Simulated assay, not measured.
Amino acid sequence: MSAGRRLEPTEISAHEYMSLMQRWISDKIDDVKLFPTDPSTVSFAPNASYVSATVLSVPESEDWVGRRSGFPKEFASTCRTIFLQMFRVYAHLYWSHLVDPFYHLNLEKQLNSCFSHFILTATSLDLLCAEDLKPVQQLVDLWAANGTFPPGSKAYSLAHVQSGEQLMQCGLEV
């Protein structure tokens, strides 16, 4: 793993990486400053006093996703980082463990279901982009071609459907 250009990369096992990542995500989700839980601070009604007094008087440059409900400015970027970390775990599972244990235990359909829903959600919320999907591009292509991703979805638009169709013609199924 790497922590930037100035620091030496540190190799850690996938298990250790996943444990650290899980702990980091849990800490973020449990942080009430990042994920507010006080219902009195939530404002979703267009005529709420918070909206008229605060949001409407704020210049557009000072507005951000979740501001109206008390989420901090870094909320969207933190969510993207969380999704990137989770994506890396999925990519590792496909690259290193699809056959053993998932296929051998007849669990590949459950993995595919979870991951395809993850991709559909992450891409529709712009938490993952085309560049992020490169490690699993062939899988995205295949799922677009076989109908797992609906044609109107963002995930479908990020796929190379013709490549997926060629994979299907070769008899490849995941």
Rank of each mutant, 00 (worst) to 15 (best):
142 L>I: 04
40 S>L: 00
95 W>T: 13
75 F>H: 14
97 H>P: 01
80 R>Q: 12
119 I>F: 08
98 L>C: 08
136 V>M: 13
52 S>E: 15
105 L>T: 03
22 Q>G: 05
2 S>D: 11
93 L>K: 06
97 H>F: 03
89 V>H: 09
129 C>W: 04
110 Q>R: 06
117 H>K: 12
12 I>S: 13
57 S>E: 09
54 T>Q: 10
79 C>E: 06
80 R>S: 10
63 D>E: 04
53 A>F: 02
18 M>F: 08
157 S>T: 02
80 R>T: 08
21 M>L: 11
32 V>W: 01
5 R>K: 12
84 L>S: 11
24 W>K: 13
129 C>K: 14
5 R>D: 06
43 S>R: 15
102 F>V: 10
149 F>Q: 03
9 P>I: 05
22 Q>C: 03
136 V>A: 08
89 V>S: 09
66 G>W: 06
144 A>Y: 07
16 E>S: 10
20 L>E: 06
25 I>V: 12
94 Y>W: 14
66 G>M: 10
100 D>H: 11
3 A>E: 15
26 S>E: 05
83 F>D: 04
19 S>N: 13
173 E>M: 08
157 S>D: 05
107 L>N: 07
151 P>Q: 01
20 L>P: 01
35 F>H: 14
22 Q>I: 01
5 R>E: 00
93 L>F: 00
168 M>L: 15
143 W>V: 00
102 F>C: 01
163 S>L: 01
102 F>A: 07
58 V>L: 15
14 A>W: 06
68 R>T: 07
4 G>K: 13
130 A>P: 00
88 R>D: 10
140 V>P: 00
167 L>P: 04
140 V>I: 14
150 P>I: 01
76 A>K: 13
16 E>C: 02
95 W>P: 00
166 Q>G: 00
155 A>S: 04
145 A>M: 07
147 G>P: 05
65 V>S: 04
167 L>Q: 14
41 T>A: 07
112 N>R: 12
70 G>T: 07
35 F>N: 12
12 I>H: 10
165 E>W: 01
29 I>Y: 11
26 S>G: 11
170 C>R: 15
173 E>G: 03
27 D>R: 15
